[in-house]
Design a protein around this nucleic acid. Structure first.
Lengths: 294, 294
DNA sequence: TGTTACCCATAGACATGATCTATAGCTCCT
DNA sequence: AGGAGCTATAGATCATGTCTATGGGTAACA
């Protein structure tokens, strides 16, 4: 029936054997000597075997005690390592952080945070999973990532959403459309020009399509691309007017390789949100990262 | 300050992780679910890290919990093995028994016991250390053997002595001395013949020397040998009259290869004793062997 | 869409069992 | 002979582990 001894007894046994003295073990464990004596006795009785022989200088392992010790010592080492590891995890000296998001968000927005985090916690391994918003959400729900970074809005009761950073989408063009540089266009005027949009299932695409609808127009892109880099590249080469996130082209705007095509209607800002799964507690690393970004 | 967690908590953690359910773990450990819940919580608080995420189907390890489990599982396996090993030691399915004694005692007296013991407890390894009585006593005091089997008397307060078996030393001769077969000799008459004795530092040698002294004679052997086998062999070949233990030559006496040379004074019997060190508890194997022999 | 069933968390009462104090015996060392 | 150090034992105490009772949440199913 016994189902094994109380593991705590093995801790006492370990120190008694290690120090060769019940009194010493007691000091090490912040106990009194009779407690240790009693604990050892319990083990001995449970095994029906003497573990120590006692003499005036302390205790010494019997043959059987030495056998037990050879196991318990290993076990004790493992537990000690485990406790150290857990401390390391908590202190972010170890562990891993798995983040899901789009390539462009990683590249243009999260990169400095990731750098900063890695610099301060070099022991924490970073795993970046790129994917579309729905993919990120799936990863998150499956527990394959700790947190997701996506465009808002997300409405999912399973997910905890923390709004983090506001991005502003806008239309940009290159030198080919220089005549638009100082103009303020209406939506109708904009539609005269070839438009380059991100692929159909992106949030930005849905947002802009809806905006045009709300004004009674329908926006049909000339070119449809699958990466933000291509969006930028095509605009720079004059293939059309791209709908991009302004923060992602700040360099090109400064250098003059691109300019913003201003409209006479406001374009809605888009919020970046940090997603976590409600039922899943955050790892220390994830907590720290959320604090950093948020 | 913590000095590590109560090891008992790790047992609970192990089963919670193993079964994926606090309720199941509780059943396994003959506890109630709240106890397990509480124990897990203590660990989580001590580490400052969530170990499980809870859902309607049970619990699942977090990243950190999985790390902890990888250590604790190993540790648990070791403790389980340790407990099994201790049971095996107690049941004499395992372990070792180290006996010290003279070759002749092993060969002529202990052998059947050793065979019997080995047959019944094949898992227990037998280590036989042969040596003289003082050597055996030293081994015993150094803890290098569990018990010693030697001729009595032994007077040593550190040692526990159990008298076991009585042996009778006697003089034997071979065909060459056939004329003595039915005679009853005096000590003086015996000394007319060449005597073969065991080497100087043996108990039998001291005993017989002392006996002759007490009758005013001095016994000086023609031949002095270092093994009982030689003692017998030399007697058989007619090199002299050997002083041997009767029980060790029972075969030769029966076969007629040797006969006993009777004396008109009684030769003292010699007692075999089983020695153990007082301060050292006997291993299960040693206990069993002592019971068998005693 | 209720309903059931199973899971875990929490609060508070309780009792077991670990721990303590006090004491005695032993051995080694001076 | 006396002291210092060790362990064993007995018995009192109290902390901590464990329980009961309860509530809330989620998944499965009708």
């Amino acid at each position: 029936m016994s189902m094994g001894n109380n593991y705590e007894l093995y801790k006492v046994f370990y120190w008694a054997a290690k120090t060769g003295s019940l009194s010493q073990a007691a000091k090490t464990l912040y106990l009194t000597q009779p407690s240790v004596s009693h604990a050892v006795k319990q083990l001995e009785e449970s095994f029906g075997v003497a573990l120590f022989y006692r003499n005036a200088r302390g205790v010494e392992l019997t043959q059987e005690g030495a056998v037990l010790f050879s196991y318990i010592e290993q076990s004790h080492i493992l537990i000690t390592l485990a406790e150290e590891k857990m401390a390391a995890l908590k202190n972010l000296e170890s562990g891993e952080l798995r983040i899901g998001g789009s390539d462009s968000l990683f590249k243009h927005y999260l990169l400095p945070y990731l750098e900063h985090f890695h610099e301060h916690h070099p022991g924490v391994k970073l795993h970046l999973h790129h994917g579309t918003t729905p993919e990120v959400i799936t990863f998150l729900k499956e527990g394959r990532i700790d947190l997701g970074v996506v465009r808002m809005p997300i409405i999912d009761p399973q997910l905890e959403v923390k709004e983090s950073f506001q991005l502003q989408d806008c239309f940009v063009a290159g030198a080919r459309y220089a005549e638009l540089k100082d103009a303020v266009l209406s939506l109708e005027e904009l539609l005269q020009h070839p438009i380059i949009l991100f692929s159909r299932n992106s949030r930005a695409r849905m947002t802009i399509t809806e905006l045009f609808h709300s004004y009674g127009f329908s926006i049909r892109p000339e070119i449809e691309v699958g990466s933000v880099d291509l969006l930028i590249e095509f605009a720079k080469r004059g293939l059309g007017i791209s709908y991009v996130t302004r923060e992602f082209v700040s360099k090109e705007l400064e250098e003059g390789a691109l300019f913003e095509v201003r409209l006479n209607v406001p374009l809605p800002p888009s919020q970046v949100g940090i997603l976590t799964k409600r039922s899943m507690p955050l790892s220390s690393a994830a907590q720290a990262f959320v604090r950093l970004v948020g």
